[in-house]
Nucleic acid binder design. Structure first.
Length: 258
DNA sequence: ATGGCATTTAAAAAATGA
């Protein structure tokens, strides 16, 4: 089973790129982030015509996540949103069971500028995610937590670490939160397959960042322990970042044995 | 240290992203 995650940065502006990528990469399950569209304006029909069913959690203007699965698979929705803050109306989390695997699709807050209320929100959101992650591990079922974490876990994941030390994506508190989450018992799938390689999943639109390979690794796959032996392959669809009218993120994927 | 670009909303300019 091939599972992919892709921060599209606007599902409507990105539709041609997303449709082409779905056809070429052909993942069985897809987690999308940053739809930037209310539910009623999401191009559901066009995406379904490429052979996918989906559950959508949109929001006007910002955020928005979705889980897609090939037509032959069932999507059993478990929850939308994380517990712990009834005031939070941002669409950033969607969870479903597909093919006996729990899929958590997340878009963690950016958090800039830091320090400040947005950074506080990021850290609180991280705590709520970690709480849900711990619950899922206790259920002893296969779980994939994937999406845009907005964290570079280590210096290896940033083209120029010294420039990012005070940024909300790289500050010590955030790296520590990610480290503590992984320490619950999760596996960073990309790093398991590629322990040393430089792999980036985001390239700024500015200053030819993609051409200069000045990127960040912020889109991640965390796997529960029982999926370790099922991880066959992982990778990024690097070329998609070079397409016309493309997202600033790159699709990331893993392949699980049945 | 700043600004470079892209998207959405909504009709110019602001907010957000990373």
């Amino acid at each position: 089973m091939k599972i992919a995650t892709y921060n599209v940065n606007g599902i409507n502006a990105r539709l041609p790129v997303v449709l082409r990528w779905l056809k070429e990469s052909s993942p069985d399950v897809v987690c999308l982030q940053e739809l930037k569209s209310p539910d009623e304006k999401i191009p559901k029909t066009e995406i379904e015509k490429t052979g996918y069913k989906a559950i959508w959690h949109g929001q006007k203007r910002w955020n928005g996540v979705a889980i897609l699965a090939k037509e032959n698979l069932e999507i059993q929705e478990m929850s939308r949103g994380l517990e712990g803050d009834p005031e939070d109306i941002q669409s950033r989390y969607l969870e479903a069971v597909i093919n006996d695997v729990v899929i958590g699709c997340l878009y963690l807050p950016n958090g800039n500028p830091a320090p400040g209320p947005k950074f506080d929100y990021k850290l609180r959101w991280f705590e709520r995610l970690s709480k849900r992650a711990k619950e899922l591990l206790e259920h002893d079922v296969p779980v994939v937590l994937t999406g845009d974490y907005n964290v570079m876990p280590t210096e290896k994941d940033v083209y120029k670490p010294e420039r990012w030390v005070n940024d909300a994506l790289f500050r010590p508190e955030v790296r520590e939160a990610f480290h503590n989450l992984v320490a619950q018992g999760w596996t960073d799938a990309i790093r398991k397959i590629y322990p040393e390689e430089t792999i980036y999943t985001f390239f700024d639109y500015f200053r030819n960042a993609y051409q200069r390979n000045a990127g960040l690794r912020i889109d991640h796959f965390l796997l529960s322990p029982d999926l370790n032996d099922r991880l066959k392959a992982a990778g990024i669809d690097h070329d998609v970042r070079g397409w016309e009218k493309t997202s600033d993120h790159v699709p990331v994927w893993i392949e699980l044995a049945e």
